[in-house]
Nucleic acid binder design. Structure first.
Lengths: 110, 110
DNA sequence: TTAATTAATCGTAATATTGCAATATAAAAA
DNA sequence: TTTTTATATTGCAATATTACGATTAATTAA
């Protein structure tokens, strides 16, 4: 095989997996961290910031955008990429559930 | 290529990416959700719970364990898998940074 | 118009992931 | 010991990801 059995899981599970997967690469973590740092961005900056070729970064940006973690708009001469709150809101709920569980958990079997 | 340029990124970026990547599959999200629900687990339960073959689930459990998101100990006849707080603590910090940023962000260029 | 700049897309090689049947391992039960 | 039960490992086919050179597309500057 090689393809995930997407149909076998809930829409929410797939959605979360897509978001997590998009963050599952150090270059994409670096891009998000950079966007947080500069609080606005044009793609050229990222190309200078990261040790990857321009097409590779463009591809990573596309994946982050498809997952809903960043937004990109034309801003004069180049493209402005920013954090997309919506995507992060979705992940937040998942981690809040886990945090809540960890705080009150009693069964410490492992 | 095909391999990530791990060496080009910080240790923290790689660590976060590994954690996120481990969550980047619906089956592994389902496993985590199930562990949260039952608050303790033996692998057999998961095999019955998910629409995947036993070797496939074993593999997903291994990946979650390697990433530090779950722990597994022998519990009599079978193995008890639980949430590993440490891994989730690490991700938590990252999302707290993002949440903090999103709350006070002003530059809404996109 | 032509040249320069910026970013996306195409094509492709190297590598990783997903899923499972078959098999192996290890412990408990008979 | 033999059988059963529970989980891990191996091997492999199908598919996905990563990275980048070459190219394209679109805009700005000259």
């Amino acid at each position: 095989m090689g393809a995930s059995k997407t149909d076998s899981f809930t829409e929410k599970q797939n959605e979360l997996a897509i978001l997590a997967k998009a963050l599952g690469h150090p270059a994409r973590i670096a891009i998000i961290e950079y966007l947080l740092k500069v609080d606005a961005c044009i793609c050229g900056d990222i190309v200078n910031e990261l040790p990857l070729a321009q097409p590779t970064i463009s591809q990573h940006l596309k994946e982050l955008k498809n997952a809903g973690l960043i937004k990109g708009n034309f801003e004069g001469t180049s493209i402005c990429y920013c954090i997309d709150e919506l995507g992060f809101e979705k992940i937040k709920g998942f981690f809040q559930d886990i945090t809540k569980y960890l705080e009150k958990r009693k069964n410490n079997c492992c």
